[in-house]
């Protein structure tokens, strides 16, 4: 039986939550003061996921970098491998919002997608 301490992000109270896990399953949540806290703890204790947003270097663009995000979210413990891959990446201009710049980043199954466009330098 494992216990995990979490801070609820559902509202400004920020309840200190304690999730009890058995065989990788949440069996009990305490410390929450509303049902949203319990739902949050059940998700967060088993498989915390995050959108990673960063920027990717662009060659020949009007600006040096273009903003990106992971689609879908990636596991929290894979954020740094994902960032390493994003930092190693350079793409040619132009870039359009929604372009997939890297598939299956760091083996997460998520894509790195441009969140804005960037024109070619004249």
């Amino acid at each position: 039986m494992d216990e995990m301490e979490l801070t609820c992000i559902c509202c400004p109270i920020g309840c200190g939550l304690r999730a009890t896990l058995e065989a990788g399953q949440v069996v009990r949540v305490t410390g929450n003061t509303c049902p949203r806290g319990e739902a949050y703890a059940r998700r967060e204790a088993v498989s915390p996921m995050r959108t990673v947003t960063s920027s990717v270097a662009v060659e020949g663009g009007v600006r040096p970098v273009v903003p990106v995000k992971t689609v879908p979210d990636v596991p929290k413990d894979r954020i740094f491998p994902v960032m390493d891959a994003i930092r190693d990446l350079t793409v040619p201009a132009p870039v359009r919002a929604g372009d997939v710049l890297l598939r299956d980043v760091a083996g997460t199954g998520a894509d790195v997608v441009a969140t804005a466009g960037l024109d070619k330098a004249p």
Binding site: T53, S55, T115, A116
Partner: peptide, 19 residues
């Protein structure tokens, strides 16, 4: 503001600032 979290009220989805 390239992070996400914008537009939950307006579009019911989480967008980045540029989006």
């Amino acid at each position: 503001c390239i992070h996400s979290g914008f537009g939950l009220h307006t579009f019911q989805e989480e967008l980045t600032g540029p989006e």
